Amino acid sequence: MEWTGALYADTPTAEASVYIGAPLAKVWNVVTDIELMPIFSTELKSAAWVDPVRGPQLGNSFTGTSRHPKLGEWSTTSYVVECDAPRAFSWAVGNAETPGATWRFTLELEDDGTRLRQWVRMGPGPSGLSIAIAAMPEKEQKIVFVRMRELEQAIEHTLAAIKTFIEGEEH
């Protein structure tokens, strides 16, 4: 990935994928169960649907609490902005129109299983990253670079954990 010179205003992205030896529907059920997601994540510690009709439906919202050793703990509200079962699920953090970040899972048939991709785009709205940049504007490129590398590693960890969880259930 190339982030040299990237700025927050450029809405930088990180993405990774993994092959999972399970059908689309099984993978879909796991990646859209936001209350299960904290067991796979290095930062997300809890998540819960806000809406009375819970689940992955366009417009539904959920709260999440995350923790990072250098950034502390924070909670956000996210909004489901894409729900195309069993192909794509995405949510906007903070504000659906100008999110602080947008996260997305995509699922594709591959051989006898599923190719699962996770993607994140920072911005264009404010987030913890934009707060850090405002405090140290001369270090914006480094701040963005470091955070995007952390997110790339977190995505790889999450995908590996999801693969282990699903394939463990399959056998």
Rank of each mutant, 00 (worst) to 15 (best):
M1N: 13
G5I: 06
A6Q: 03
A6H: 08
L7I: 00
T11Q: 13
P12G: 02
E15Y: 00
V18L: 15
Y19T: 05
I20N: 05
I20F: 05
I20M: 11
G21K: 06
G21D: 15
A22S: 13
L24P: 06
A25P: 02
K26F: 09
V27G: 05
V27W: 06
W28R: 07
L36R: 08
P38L: 02
I39W: 05
F40S: 04
S41V: 03
T42F: 03
E43P: 00
L44H: 10
L44W: 01
W49S: 08
P52S: 09
V53W: 00
G55A: 06
G55C: 09
S61P: 07
F62C: 07
T65V: 13
T65P: 09
R67P: 00
H68N: 12
H68E: 06
H68K: 10
P69H: 11
E73F: 01
E73Q: 15
W74C: 08
T77M: 09
V81I: 15
C83T: 04
C83R: 00
F89R: 09
S90I: 05
T102E: 10
W103Y: 14
L107W: 04
E108P: 01
E110S: 13
D112V: 13
T114F: 01
Q118A: 13
Q118S: 06
V120W: 05
G128R: 09
S130E: 09
A132P: 03
A134P: 12
A134E: 15
M136L: 10
E138S: 13
E140M: 10
Q141D: 05
V146C: 01
L151S: 10
L151V: 14
A154C: 03
E156T: 09
H157W: 14
H157C: 15
I162A: 07
T164N: 12
I166C: 03
H171F: 10
H171Y: 14
